[in-house]
């Protein structure tokens, strides 16, 4: 089998149809079978959440910038899809718009730029060395083989350390990007961020963990049935209302 040189690979990539990977509508089914056809959900391009004028201006500027080349964005998409695939009822990284989230974070944090650009280049070089093409242009099983060697921090092989750091970083970004979406909340089963009246750990949970509230402690705690009665104290600092 002929081994492609780095230059030839780039040339063939340029000729290959990188079909519309960057633009896709919400709900598209992602596929990691063919990198050239990968699609993902789009994220909003404007936000409103209590920003100052200076903050609004900065975010607008970030949205107007492009950092990644198309090849880099596709590589990020393929990696995110491997890390958290979409073949799951709660969706995966691509349904959560991960490539666009990574792009935004990289523009927001200058220090992220080099590790990701360099990491992608490292991964491509490794793929060329082992399989004769860039990461996104080798077969799915070859891609998984490349990930297997850098997905575990306990691997001590010196020549893999840069790849291991990069993969860990991509795993962090993928998981944080997914779990901070509605799909991620659902996957986790998160309950919170809503007005409520906290009145202690549920009894069933206390029993499961073999812990209990001490009566003396509970006496110091709020009686939620009286929370709306205006506080009054006697001269001895005792709450009497």
């Amino acid at each position: 089998m002929k081994t492609l040189t780095r230059r030839e690979t780039l040339k063939s990539l340029l000729l290959a149809p990188l079909a519309g990977g960057v633009i896709a509508s919400t709900g598209c089914i992602a596929s990691s079978n063919s990198a050239a056809e990968i699609t993902w959900s789009s994220l909003p391009k404007s936000y409103s959440y209590g920003r100052t004028e200076a903050e609004k201006l900065r975010d607008q500027k970030l949205f107007s910038e492009t950092y990644f080349r198309e090849h880099e964005l596709l590589t990020i998409a393929v990696l995110c899809d491997i890390i958290l695939p979409s073949d799951h009822p709660n969706g995966g990284a691509l349904d959560a718009g991960l490539p666009e989230f990574v792009e935004f974070m990289v523009k927001d944090r200058e220090r992220y730029k080099l590790p990701i650009r360099g990491g992608i280049a490292w991964l491509d070089n490794r793929a060329i060395d082992r399989f004769g093409a860039d990461f996104i242009n080798v077969t799915e099983s070859q891609r998984l083989s490349l990930c297997d060697e850098i997905a575990y921090p306990d691997v001590k092989d010196a020549e893999l350390q840069a790849g291991i750091s990069f993969f860990s970083f991509m795993r962090n970004l993928t998981l944080t990007g997914y779990y901070t979406t509605a799909e991620g909340f659902k996957d986790l089963g998160y309950k919170g961020n809503t007005p409520n009246i906290w009145d202690g750990v549920p009894e069933s949970v206390l029993q499961k963990h073999n812990v209990a509230y001490e009566a003396e402690w509970l006496e110091k705690c709020v009686d939620q049935s009286r929370r709306d009665i205006i506080a009054q104290w006697d001269d001895e600092m005792n709450l009497i209302s």
Binding site: L84, P85, D87, A151, R171, N172, T176, G184, Y190, G192
Partner: peptide, 30 residues
């Protein structure tokens, strides 16, 4: 707490305490 930026970083670092491997990818991360 509510997931926010940074949630999921070092997702399974505690695996080292329960005899499982740290790292990996795929739905096991969920």
């Amino acid at each position: 707490g509510m997931p926010s930026y940074g949630f999921g970083f070092s997702a399974n670092q505690y695996n080292e305490f329960i005899g499982e491997r740290v790292g990996g990818y795929g739905n096991q991360l969920r």
